[in-house]
Design a protein around this nucleic acid. Structure first.
Lengths: 348, 348
DNA sequence: AACCCATGTCTAATCGTTTAGATGGCAAGA
DNA sequence: TCTTGCCATCTAAACGATTAGACATGGGTT
């Protein structure tokens, strides 16, 4: 059906070997005259190599698997875009999978990617789930975790410096005159958001945050405030809807904080939407800083102040780690971008 | 290195053929006792089939190529997610590519996907560029266009009913008491946005909109208003930044309309951001309806009224068209979802 | 007893590449 | 003239699966 190497060889009057040598500036040289004949034949027949066959023989598919914890979250989505782009510049194709926050789907995707003989695996992981990359290691396929790595994993990780980012957010809100700075975390203290939550607590109390206890992590309560002075910790899951609902509830119960650090852009967008719906003015009545700083955060109403993770650099580095084994770990700084939502006026 | 069919066969004391028959409930039956032996051997060795080898021999890779015109646009992104999900339910893997609004990248991606022997191609296309699916047709690979199809293409298309959506938006704003309803289009009248623009003009003037003339399409002007009565057509490119800048400019020149239909969510989000930045109140000072209605539009501030394209159904249908040749065309209705931005109060 | 058929399994070709080893020709050095 | 070596090319064996055709076995018919 399709044009094959053999067709080209026949037309050029050579063996398939020389055609292959020509096509990939092969491991052996070819006489200039022959090369031209081959090239001409290939062009006339509109030959394009079958990558599947190449992959089978050369044991390298030129494809990298990218699995995203949840593709509808702007943070994961933006990371995914950058990783795909980075892979493209390296001439790799991207096999894409969305785990939709289900650890077993993540596992299954990786299984299938490995069966497809991917050359590498980029796992943009949420908390929860086991060390899915172990499978890749067993198959000697290079892998990288991005954003989060399960505790027991040995696979390299690329993630932003959460603690420093949180400290700068606290710092900044203090400079705006806020004393009581609440924090909106996820439903539990697992993963990077847990790190952020602990860093916030530490920054406010100037002493290490309490180790998360089981009761705390599983508690269905959304609001905790031991006494008037204690930092207020809010929780909701990672969805716009929950965050918007949370604003409604807090307002109804008159328990709104004056300043809030939000663990993720996804939640921050929900908070903004909820605030807008009930006429709560940001930043006048509630100052807000988010901790992802995805591109989306620049075009909310009002624009979100955020610590911006260098997603492009992270993507670059993650892909690097896949292919150059000597690459060193990467824990980039996420600078604070003051916009409107914290009380800063946009400059320019 | 990895466990192969031959390894399993050896261990089970059979030929590779029976192993293959067992693995895929093959074209031939296998005695129950033998089947059990094979299954046991496969389990013990942790055998997993090499899809590359299978693809080469069976001439079907189980992979479908998905190329997105621009992955950072919420509309394309949401569509992409649904398509990936739909493919997953059919047991297909998704080879993902982002054309980033460059027609040549789109072409190149398709080229590479075909080389990778994809079983099908879903092309979520923006306007511009040639009939890239022609290449797929030549290779006898099924393809579908989603959202937009180049004029000369014969490949099936899945896209929402733009005209009806626009009419319902105009209708709705009129019911809010608006007479002068402006429209924010893209930089030219190509593609679906052109359709929307023409439908808007027709709805306002009750006669067919002017055929786009070359001068109009290429014109760098962003605002056109022939006389006080004529519909006001705004243009800017498909980015949040441009849309936000447009609001600034219009406000500075005191030429803001009172009601505006926006061609895409991407632009609508920019408009909202720009409005928020200059203190322009929506919907009080400017009523707005967007025409994509992606999930994002529900969580803007204020929430965007929009005609919601049934992205999930579209994805389902697109994938269907790939695999069942008899599937009929699909031009779904995009119902109007009134939210805050048009002046409606959210119910509940 | 000879034949037929069904059943279960094996052998081996095949998919389209890549690439190590064999081959043949020609120029330079002895 | 006879090596020696190099260069360009060819032959053919992989890669790991699928699957048509051959084959062997063991009833059931006549």
């Amino acid at each position: 059906m399709a044009v094959t190497l053999a067709d080209v060889a026949r037309r050029a009057g050579t063996s398939t070997a020389v055609v292959s040598y020509v096509m990939n500036n092969g491991p052996r040289p070819v006489a200039a005259a022959t090369r031209d004949r081959v090239l001409a034949a290939a062009a006339e027949l509109d030959y394009r190599p079958n990558r599947i066959a190449r992959a089978l023989r050369a044991r390298t598919s030129g494809v990298v698997g990218l699995v995203l914890a949840g593709a509808s979250n702007p943070y994961y989505a933006a990371l995914g875009r950058h990783i795909e782009q980075e892979l493209e510049t390296r001439g790799k194709l991207t096999l894409f999978g969305n785990a939709a926050f289900a650890p077993d789907r993540q596992q299954q995707l990786i299984e299938r990617f490995l069966a497809a003989q991917v050359d590498g695996l980029v796992i943009v992981s949420a908390d929860g789930g086991h060390d899915v990359a172990a499978r890749a290691a067993a198959a000697k396929v290079p892998a990288v975790y991005v954003h989060h790595r399960p505790a027991e994993a040995r696979t390299p990780l690329v993630a932003a410096d959460n603690a420093t980012a949180v400290r700068s957010a606290v710092e900044h809100l203090r400079r705006h005159g806020h004393q009581h700075i609440a924090f909106l975390a996820g439903p539990d203290d697992a993963g990077p958001v847990g790190e952020r939550r602990r860093a916030w607590h530490e920054a406010l109390t100037s002493r290490p945050g309490p180790a998360p206890d089981a009761a705390d992590e599983q508690a269905p309560v959304l609001l905790r405030s031991a006494d008037e002075q204690a930092p207020v910790l809010l929780r909701c899951d990672y969805s716009r809807a929950s965050a918007a609902a949370l604003v409604h509830r807090l307002a109804a119960e008159d328990r709104l904080p004056r300043a809030l650090i939000i663990a993720t852009d996804e939640q921050a967008i929900g908070i903004l939407a909820g605030a807008s719906a009930i006429g709560l003015r940001i930043p006048e009545q509630l100052a807000v800083i988010s901790l992802d700083g995805t591109p989306e955060s620049a075009y909310t109403a009002p624009a979100l102040s955020a610590t911006r993770q260098p997603l492009e650099a992270m993507a670059h580095h993650a892909v690097n780690l896949l292919f150059v084994p000597t690459a060193e770990p990467f824990l980039p700084h996420a600078p604070l971008i003051p916009r409107r939502s914290c009380g800063c006026v946009p400059t320019g």
